[in-house]
Simulated assay, not measured.
Amino acid sequence: MGRRQVLMPMLPGMPDAVAGRPAKAHARPPLRTLEQAIARSRDIIAEALERYPIVARQALVSGGNDSSVLLHLVRDYLDSSPHDAVVHVNTGIGIDDTRQHVRDLTAAWNLPLRELHPRDSYEDLILGQVIARTGPNAGIRSVWKGFPGPGGHGVMYRRLKNEPLQRNRAAIIGTHGRSQKVLYLAGMRWGESDRRFRNAAEIDPDGGIIWCSPLVHWTNEQMRQYRELHLIPRNPVAEHLHMSGECLCGAYAKPGELDEIEFFYPRTAYRIRSLEKKVEAAGMPACKWGQAPPGGKQPKPGSVPGRLCSSCPAPLADQQMDLMDLWAQSGLLTPTTTPAPALVPVPIPEVAA
Rank of each mutant, 00 (worst) to 15 (best):
L160V: 02
D120A: 13
V182H: 06
S193C: 05
R167D: 15
P136W: 12
K161I: 10
R158G: 01
A186M: 11
L125F: 02
R169P: 04
D120S: 11
R196H: 09
P136K: 14
P136A: 12
I172C: 06
R195Q: 14
S193D: 07
G154H: 03
R133S: 13
H153N: 13
I126V: 14
E163C: 02
N162W: 14
G146Q: 10
A170C: 06
P148V: 01
G154I: 02
V155E: 12
M188A: 15
F147H: 00
D120P: 01
I140Y: 09
L127E: 09
P150G: 08
G177I: 01
V155A: 12
I173W: 07
D124H: 07
F147K: 01
L160G: 00
E192G: 05
M156D: 01
G151D: 09
A186R: 07
R178Q: 13
F147W: 05
G146M: 07
S121M: 11
F147P: 03
V130R: 05
A200Y: 03
R167N: 14
I140S: 10
Y122I: 00
L185N: 09
Y184I: 02
H176E: 15
P164W: 08
P164G: 00
I173N: 02
Y157M: 00
I126Q: 01
N168C: 13
Q166G: 07
T175F: 05
R167Q: 15
E202K: 06
R169K: 13
L185K: 08
I172H: 00
G177L: 05
V182Y: 08
K161E: 08
L127D: 01
G187K: 07
G152S: 02
D124G: 08
G128N: 05
K145D: 09
D124R: 08
R141H: 14
L127S: 04
D124L: 02
A132H: 12
G152E: 06
G154M: 07
